[in-house]
Amino acid sequence: MTQGAALKVEGLSKSFGGPQKALKDVRLTVAPGEMVALIGASGSGKSTLLRHISGFVAGDPGSGAIRVNQHVMQEGGRVAGSIRHLRADVGFVFQQFNLVGRLTVMTNVLMGQLPRIPLWRSLIGRFTREEKAEAWRAMKSVGIENLAWQRASTLSGGQQQRVAIARALVQRAGIILADEPIASLDPESARVVMEILARINREQGITVLVSLHQVQFARRYCVRTVALRLGEVVYDGPSAALEAGMLRQLYGASVEEMLDGTETIDAVMNDPVVAEGLGVAAATA
């Protein structure tokens, strides 16, 4: 399993200067074709971990390696020299979609082709019929082909997130990292986006690592869940086992908000009593 891992994170640590480490010796292995949820409160390090995998941020000097399909993305706090090239295999779906609003949906999706086409063609914005057809198929598979010629900024949040997924599909990424893809969406759009991620995982065998605020989505769409707390992996196992009791043990007494989904975990974390409780838990851990 280790040999053929889609993603392998070994002993990754990161501190941003403060006394608290953002990531503490994180170890994580994801097999090809898995769909894994990454849960945790705000500030637990979910985003930071995903951004390290994509090579946007380098770990602390001397911290371990991150491999995607055997390629070293970073090692010992140094991002690989060929990181731009390596990123083509890693689709990234952002909480705020990160589309270029003034360009059309088609152009945003075509951007997935950039690493594969010659530079002169990409700089004059020339894409072949075949490349456009591939973008069209990707848009069709997420149900946004009728919006192809609209400016991305005119789309709703749910539609924009589907454009971002189509872009990752055109990239032909073997693994998709989704950083809180549904945190900015209404419940129905959130459901649609999660369904799409689950479908491309199931039908195309693309490995998916998705960070989520709410445990209910993890239980519903992912077999396996990895839980982070204060930069440490505190749980890695079947999502079904994440019962209220277990979560209470991981996150303190007031974890109900994380469960029913009506309130986000931010509210819990902003509660001084809970924050203090977590601090005590970390000190005793």
């Binding site: 731009r84 090239h85 950039l114």
Partner: peptide, 27 residues
């Protein structure tokens, strides 16, 4: 900076990042 990061995430080169992420915004 977010759209630029979106372009970067596709594996685009630095020049492509500027052409697709920066210039449309400032045009």
């Amino acid at each position: 900076p977010r759209p630029v990061e979106g372009v970067r995430a596709t594996g685009a080169s630095a020049l492509e990042e500027v052409f697709y992420g920066v210039i449309p915004q400032v045009m």
